[in-house]
């Protein structure tokens, strides 16, 4: 249990997928202009991540990893080179499902998110989480918690960034830094603030 809490806190604050690994920047910078859509996209990412991470774990452990096919009598087969394409396929399928759900229940959010909703498929944060999960050899429960934690970290980052950008409307940013420039600087400062739990051991 303590291990799970530690993984969760770690993926939200210390190893924040956005602020520590800088994955998922494109939609972060583009969508955080608007508060409502940020919240919507943030929760969509949490949802997609918390499904894809465990599903990809199952697929990797029972089909792809070296020796995983022992249960059908093929103990020497190693399909792990297929992990990228498989992970992406799972993610794309999940995103399709999310898209249909949002279209059905909240057409306004669907329109506001526009192209960025299908683009969650190629959001580096989603694939990155699945790959980190393989690399760190998490168990099923750990990968579930890691998925939820990474999503929550991304959600926190984009929502606070959206609020900061509302405040930045009253700022007088030098011309060369307006728009993306200042957003990147604020992201860097946010990364510094999120260091507060680095080094924590539970």
């Amino acid at each position: 249990m303590e291990n799970l809490i530690s993984i969760f806190l770690n993926s939200v604050f210390v190893g924040n997928i956005l602020l520590a690994y800088f994955l998922g920047m494109c939609s972060f910078v583009a969508i955080s202009k608007n508060m409502e859509t940020s919240i919507g996209l943030g929760f969509a990412v949490v949802f997609v991540l918390s499904i894809t991470a465990p599903v990809n774990w199952l697929i990797y452990t029972y089909l792809l990893s070296p020796g995983a096919l022992a249960w059908v009598g093929l103990p020497t087969v190693d399909l792990s080179y297929l992990k990228f394409i498989t992970f992406i396929a799972v993610i794309a399928a999940m995103v399709q499902a999310v898209e249909m759900v949002i279209d059905r229940f909240s057409p306004a959010l669907y329109n506001a998110l526009g192209v960025f909703l299908p683009l969650i498929t190629v959001n580096c944060a989603i694939l990155g989480t699945s790959l980190f999960m393989v690399e760190r050899e998490y168990t099923f429960m750990e990968s579930l918690v890691f998925g939820i934690g990474s999503g929550t970290g991304w959600l926190l980052a984009i929502v606070s960034m959206a609020a900061i950008r509302i405040k930045l409307r009253y700022a007088d940013v030098p011309e060369g830094l307006q728009g993306f420039g200042i957003t990147m600087i604020v992201t860097g400062l946010m990364a510094m603030g999120f260091m507060l739990f680095s080094g924590i051991t539970l």
């Binding site: 929502v159 900061i164 509302i166 405040k167 603030g193 507060l196």
Partner: peptide, 13 residues
Amino acid sequence: MLAILFMNLFSPL
């Protein structure tokens, strides 16, 4: 120090 910086980030929110 980091607690204040962290909450600074969330004060607009």
